[in-house]
Design a protein around this nucleic acid. Structure first.
Lengths: 176, 176
DNA sequence: ATAGGGTGGTTGAACTCTCAACACCAGCGC
DNA sequence: GCGCTGGTGTTGAGAGTTCAACCACCCTAT
């Protein structure tokens, strides 16, 4: 951990420009969603993924992957959405461990009501401020980052899987 | 609100690629920071900004702007950092409303301990997966988004300023 | 000098997220 | 049939964020 490849001045500028933009844009979009639709952006994402699924229903684990949330987060979120009447949970047939989450008509209506404001915000603060060339590159950048992140996420899951087994052997020596 | 400029298929792809990457990357970086340094990414950002300020001290409002957090968030965060002994608050001289927040030696040490792992994560998942050309464009994109967001943030502050005044007149009719 | 609006910062409650158990069931080997 | 490992999903506690007051102070105009 001693031979760190520190960031050059240029790289720091890039990282900070990216970080600032992504944090600010996320905050702005989330804020708009809360004010206008009464739910955080993460919940909107869940409704969107459900609305696009066949029969507007998905297994919890599939919904978690699609909406980029952890299982725990999804559990809490779906519980909250269920209290709103926007979503329903029923046991999956064929696997008595699983649950299927489905979007109700009220949930779809809430989604439809929230969509215009959301899209307008995204267009205004992303598509209207970038050139077509920049947008093409942004798509590539997004795909590259996601691809580079996938191994790390898989590794994290793999760790969880065997965490119950090994406890006392080789921990990585992070000085902290 | 009826003439919404919806996203084309191409635009949706771009937005989702960006959203997925930024959410996943932020989650990964935050997770790394929590595990390795015991603090969320937002707290690290606060320490960084303090460490770069003259005499490692900043007015609370300046620190809030620099670290991209709301005043409320910063208050809570600084209170937590103070409990750790990483930060100190003392009254600002010349303005008895204000407070100056300063980084302690322990705080600087915590920052120094957290930096290598953080930089390594950023390099691995951002700089190592993008081409120099993409990185140049990413800088431009970040700057453009931030610039486009500034008016909106200023407007939000302006609203707060006069919220105490008008209460019963024209509310925007959002059907929800 | 004083009222009144604006600024700086804090607080508490409600909400969301994370983390670490935990319960439950599937599938496989014996 | 029985354990055993792995996968699915939930729960509760604690941490962090948001939102809406709220207090204290500065500043200017009257």
């Amino acid at each position: 951990m001693d031979d760190v490849r520190w960031l050059s001045a240029d790289e720091q500028e890039i990282w900070r420009a990216y970080l600032s933009a992504s944090v600010s844009l996320a905050a702005h979009v989330d804020r708009q969603m809360r004010q206008h639709a009464g739910m955080p952006m993460a919940y909107y994402e869940i409704l969107v993924r459900l609305s696009e699924a066949p029969h507007r229903r998905l297994r919890m684990s599939e919904l978690a992957d699609a909406s980029l949330s952890s299982r725990s987060r999804l559990s809490h979120a779906v519980a909250a959405l269920e209290r709103n009447g926007w979503v329903e949970r029923r046991p999956a047939d064929g696997d008595r461990r699983g649950w299927v989450c489905s979007l109700t008509d009220e949930g779809f209506a809430a989604l439809a009501a929230a969509a215009p404001g959301h899209v307008t915000t995204v267009r205004e603060h992303l598509f209207d401020v970038l050139t077509p060339e920049q947008l093409r590159t942004l798509r590539e950048i997004g795909l590259a980052i996601s691809a580079g992140l996938k191994p790390a996420c898989d590794a994290a899951r793999a760790e969880d899987a065997q965490d119950t087994q090994d406890a006392e052997d080789t921990q990585d020596p992070c000085d902290e």
